[in-house]
Structure formats: structure tokens, C-alpha cells
Design a binder for these strands. Structure first.
Lengths: 146, 146
DNA sequence: TCATACTGTAGGGACTACCTACAATTGTGC
DNA sequence: GCACAATTGTAGGTAGTCCCTACAGTATGA
């Protein structure tokens, strides 16, 4: 029984984005169940992969996470052999993170799932509209248009 | 030190919407701190206000929440005198919820805050673009265009 | 009457966001 | 060289969300 939502809430982009986000994450997590991968893991893997060997604090900065929360994610990822975590020989406070081959494979897997889910999630929109939505979201986010 | 995000993540509307949503909610919560109102409370108040006297299960259905999670929200709202919760005389399994005057005032307060925050959140977009974004979000959400 | 379904409530588990504290390490001013 | 501050990773706590199960009270239909 999926009743209609209050119209007074549908006025707010924040509300709409929250619900769409939640729906997308749920679908991705469902597709990823069993692989031992969470969506956050993917974010971290992508970040380490894109910006080369990185200290944990730098990953947290780039993703807008707290460094203390990153620890558990990295524990999982390291145990699964998806990242290497080694002391930085130049600054022994830091751990240097590097992506492994398994990590790269995980990224590719989530990329595929995410593309499929995005298509579902925005299936009510034409391809042009999807493109427009993405462009506006990027701009609102403060990123230069791709 | 706000570093740039991984480009590979900015490809995903789900990721962008999640971050924008989080940012919006944080600003609203901040503005609402001290008033004893959470954003979820507002959702519930709006729902009860819009669809008249409602049973708890109906509110949960309309908002996509679990009825068990609604209980704590309603405990707060009732204690604050923002909703009345009474046994339904026609079906004594149900509690009938009605909005009080204080509840209506709370809705008006959050409406104001939310409008201001939405303006901030989308300040990188022109008014036309904000309108387009909202229309596309509504459509993606499966709602008929207003 | 008996079985079935619905409603509100209690409680738990897993996850996220945010915060503090702390030990190890590095850098700075003297 | 040395006291002091800052940084980094880690542990832990709190609050909130989402999802699930169990249960007692109530209604409904065979």
C-alpha cells in the first residue's frame, strides 16, 4: 500500500533528493549483498585509486568523512585485501594507502552496479533530462560543469 | 581544508543527491537546534496536517517509514503538545492523530527555515535552474509535475 | 467460536554522523 | 637540545536512521 506523499513535502528539493538517494543506495546495497562490499567502501576505494597513494586523513578530507569513521572501513578493506595500509617512511604518523588488484576489481564491479541502478532510479526521465539533472546537481554541488 | 572530491564519484547522481541532502539537513537541523524539533518531526506534522486526522500506520505508509520508528517521534511530538494522540472510538486498535495549534506553528517555523536553506543550498543555480531541478526531481520521484 | 489479520509498542542490530580522548610522531620557537 | 604545539591514526561514546522480530489488544470473517 504505497500512499501518496504530502504535497507540502514534495516542494522541497532536499526532501526529494534524500528519498531518491535512499532508494538508490538501497538498490546498490542489495545488488552488492554477499560481496562483502558497502557503498562507503567503494567511495574510499575510488578515492585512493584516483589520487594515488594517500594518507588516511587525506581520504577523509576528500570524501567529507571523519577520520575516525574511516578506520573501520579500512579495517574491512584491508582484511579483504582491497587496500594496502603501510606506515609512511617519511612521516611515521601516517599510513599510506594503495589500491590492490582486488580493490580495482571491486571498483569496477560497483561501477557496473551503480550504472544500472542509476538507470532504474531515473527511468522516469528521458536521457536528455537525466543529463540535465546531473549537470544541475554538479553545479549546485559547486563543481565546474564537466 | 576542503579538498576536491573524486571525479569518479561525481558521475553518480545518487552520490550528488546524497551529499546535497546531507548538507541541507545539517543546515536545517542547525537552524532548528534549541526548538526541540527534528526534521522527521516536521515530516510527520506536515503529513498529519495535510491529510487530517490519521492513524499512525497511515502516516508511516505515506512517509515511507516503519510504524515502529514513528512511535518515538510521536512520543516527542505529543509531549511537546504538537499532536494529539487519542484512541479511535470506531476501531480501538488505532490511535487518531490530530495537529494542534502548536503543531501548526512548528510547521510554519520549519517551512520558513527550509525555504531559506533551500535558497542557500542551490545558490549556485539560477532561479530557472532551481525550478528545472525541482521539476526533474519530482518527475524522477514518480510524481506528476505540479 | 476459532483462526487470521491489523495496530501500536518494545526492543535489537547494523550503519552513519559527529565528538572526545589519547599515544605516537613531527615540527617550531627558544 | 628541549619544551610546546600540531598532526595522525585509533578507540570509544552518543544520537539518529533503517529494518526486523515479537507481542498484546482489537477487529473481521469463516
Amino acid at each position: 500500500m504505497t500512499d501518496r506523499r504530502p504535497r507540502a513535502l514534495l516542494r522541497w528539493p532536499t526532501y526529494l533528493m534524500g528519498n531518491l538517494h535512499r532508494s538508490g543506495v538501497a538498490r546498490i546495497d542489495e545488488a552488492l549483498a554477499g560481496s562483502g562490499l558497502a557503498l562507503r567502501d567503494y567511495y574510499v576505494l575510488v578515492c585512493v585509486g584516483e589520487f594515488g597513494p594517500l594518507a588516511q586523513q587525506r581520504v577523509a578530507d576528500r570524501l567529507g568523512l571523519d577520520r575516525s569513521d574511516l578506520v573501520k572501513v579500512l579495517d574491512r578493506l584491508e582484511a579483504a585485501g582491497r587496500v594496502r595500509r603501510e606506515r609512511d617512511t617519511e612521516d611515521r604518523r601516517r599510513h599510506v594507502l594503495t589500491l590492490t588488484e582486488a580493490g580495482r576489481a571491486a571498483v569496477a564491479q560497483v561501477d557496473e552496479v551503480s550504472a544500472a541502478v542509476t538507470g532504474e532510479l531515473l527511468s522516469e526521465l528521458s536521457l536528455d533530462e537525466q543529463e540535465t539533472l546531473h549537470r544541475l546537481l554538479l553545479k549546485a554541488f559547486g563543481e565546474p560543469p564537466a
